[in-house]
Amino acid sequence: MRWLELTAQVESSEAEAVAEVFGRFGYGGVAIEEKAIWGCEDEAPFPNQKRRATIRIFLPIDNSLAKKRRELEEALTCLALKNPIKLFPCEIDEQEWGTAWRKHYKTLKVGQRLFIKPSWEDYKATADQVVVELDPGMAFGTGQHATTRLCLVALERYLRPGMAVLDLGTGSGILAIAAAKLGASSVLALDINTAAVEVARSNVQANGLCDLVTVEEGTLPRDEATGRGSFDLVTANIVADVIEELADSLVSTLKAQGILIVGGIAWGRLDGVIARLEEEGLKIIEVLAEGEWRTVVAQAKES
């Protein structure tokens, strides 16, 4: 079967009305994509942009196509918009859409011996390689982003077998799972997002690490018994604001000479984060960089 994809570019304020007309004819529904320059989560899109939207539907190419298209065009004129809507048609082939998205993911080598593998790929690892099985989904941390990779590299470099690890803002659980696979004796993974906690738990299970990795909903500071001075290595791949805000709590969870790995830092925020960590008495050991992203490795004092 073949499909006709019909798109139209409209002003953001007209999107809802146009989408509703499109939706009457489109198979299975209608898609509206806001064209904007996006920043990070919780930030509004770049201001003063002229907001545009793309409305998109799909029609099966069959005997009724010409009639539907005529009716759609008629209905659009009834909206009486300032500018008439121009339709852009494009024919596409039917695909196995349920699995076609997987082509974006291959087993990914990170650092010296870490591999991030989607569940549907076969990968025969050698004895010294560490494989994390992870399917992308509704939690950040697929290994496809520089900031995740930088933290994985730092983890591989500084994690020693037997270490107790805390991962703050675990997302998909990727860093917590990698830590356990690299030899951590126990890992506590925290996230404030309920959906992420569920995703992380199922990823931990898929990797057979339920006895080593505990995933909980929450953040720092934690109560004395489970927080203060109990971790050899702490990772927080979040964002500069959160790291600066929680710096004292993060540092207080470290044992003497414990290692702190913080990521998700845009290059322009690096100096501020370093200053904040030094203020808390940490020594900066290394800064890793890829593109605009920085990951900082720091160490706690001897006592």
């Binding site: 939706g23 898609a31 994509e33 904007a36 995740t148």
Partner: peptide, 12 residues
């Protein structure tokens, strides 16, 4: 994490 947004899509 530094969750940089690629796009936002509404599906009806």
């Amino acid at each position: 994490m530094a969750k940089k947004i690629k796009t936002v899509i509404k599906l009806q």
